[in-house]
Design a protein around this nucleic acid. Structure first.
Lengths: 234, 234
DNA sequence: AAATAACACCTAACATGTTACACGCTAGCT
DNA sequence: AGCTAGCGTGTAACATGTTAGGTGTTATTT
């Protein structure tokens, strides 16, 4: 594992600073969201540290951050576990996501530029191709990227990071749902409707369309809970 | 400083776990939000550790968490500073607050119970008394408590914590504005209008009233920036 | 005198040793 | 047999030692 490859700072503005704890954080987060690590599974700090070739410190730091984000559960003096799925927490995350993204899309619709719109449409085109070849993973990534782009289009510094963090729980669930996902085409059509509303600078319609889109996930979630109860908490 | 006074766990449900890093976090956060520590001021981990009678580890952990929250700025290998106020970050925080709290109040208005309403009105009564004796600090605390109670009334697990965290930046600014604050009575009237709309189970009016309430802060902010430019970043 | 390069200092980042506590197990008591 | 108390084990929490790199200063060169 590389050491801080470049911690450049202009004293007023942090350019980039990739410390080991940041790298460990990114690796673990990715592993959790992609379900390489299963909900409920123990995380042994010492082993993770050994595997990544670092000491326990940056691993602990990364795990603390993940705990804040709700992706791991730390039981003091006992152990650290990949967080199980809690329906009530998912409900809250869904609510927050809905509130933030509908508000963001309203702003985006008001201040959309042709350039950004072109980026949106390129993304949609790629989504269409991914859907046609049934490439779930790729489709999912493009989906996430589109939501990020909409956040950026709202023109608020740091909003994407906040939205992305609050979406962690949802992203995990969506990943697990991928293989039960049969509505890729429907999802694509919803995305197109959202972008269309933005293009027409119609904030209200954009927000309502986004809302309908986000709420689709609820039913699938119940399906997952029946199929894989072991992933869920109490 | 006390050691984890009780880290009780029922394996499925964390009851309470006050570790040293939690205590340090709470102390530092309070100090920053209340402006006992000024924006831009250096935080010397070693000195903080000595003052609190702990080692550098829990202090570092607490500071990492505060950095996530945007309350401190860490410059790798250089130093840690109380975050200055950045207009663009405050703008984003304001946006997030608006999105979350208007959405929360809609839900609260839909599911309000007489008991909760009574609590709201008790709070308002206390606010009135605090306003009458020009007790800024007390009024401010009651204000925060009211917003927290509204979050809780939305009936979503963990929403208050999320909202409270995202409000950190705003809370700092409001504290600084307290002594320039001349509109305590107006604020109280706005609060009363919000609660009234909830009581009448009118989500739309409640949300619009809340929106107007939150947006009041903008002008005061510009005033502060002129009076105390040293608190602000670039 | 101005520009630049070398260097010393200070800090966060990282490594590692130590402690205390949650939990499971077992033995002993009822 | 069932229940409780004490003990052993393993982990996070905490303490402390070490390293590396950013910043400011100073010396040197032009």
């Amino acid at each position: 594992m590389q050491v801080h490859s470049s911690g450049k700072i202009f004293r007023e503005q942090k350019v980039v600073s990739v410390t080991r704890k940041d790298q460990v954080y990114t690796i673990l987060r990715q592993a959790i969201i992609s379900s390489q690590l299963s909900p409920g599974e123990a995380i042994r700090k010492e082993i993770v540290a050994a595997q990544l070739g670092v000491s326990r410190t940056p691993v602990s730091d990364a795990i603390n951050r993940l705990a804040d984000e709700g992706l791991v559960e730390i039981y003091p003096q006992t152990g650290t576990f990949v967080a199980r799925l809690w329906l009530d927490k998912i409900e809250t995350a869904q609510f927050v996501r809905l509130a933030l993204e509908t508000a963001a899309i309203r702003r985006a619709a008001e201040r959309i530029t042709p350039d950004t719109l072109t980026l949106f449409r390129q993304n949609l085109e790629q989504q269409r191709r991914a859907a046609e070849r049934l490439d779930f993973e790729q489709f999912y990534e493009l989906d996430e990227a589109l939501h990020d782009m909409i956040c950026d289009a709202a023109g608020l510094v740091g909003l994407r990071e906040i939205a992305s963090k609050e979406r962690s729980q949802i992203d995990r669930v969506r990943r697990l749902l991928l293989h039960y996902e049969t509505r890729m085409m429907e999802t694509l059509i919803e995305h197109e409707a959202i972008i269309e509303a933005i293009a027409e600078k119609d904030p209200e319609r954009a927000a309502r369309t986004m809302e309908a889109h986000i709420l689709q996930m609820g039913k699938l979630l119940m399906h997952l809970r029946e199929k894989r109860p072991e992933l869920f908490g109490s």
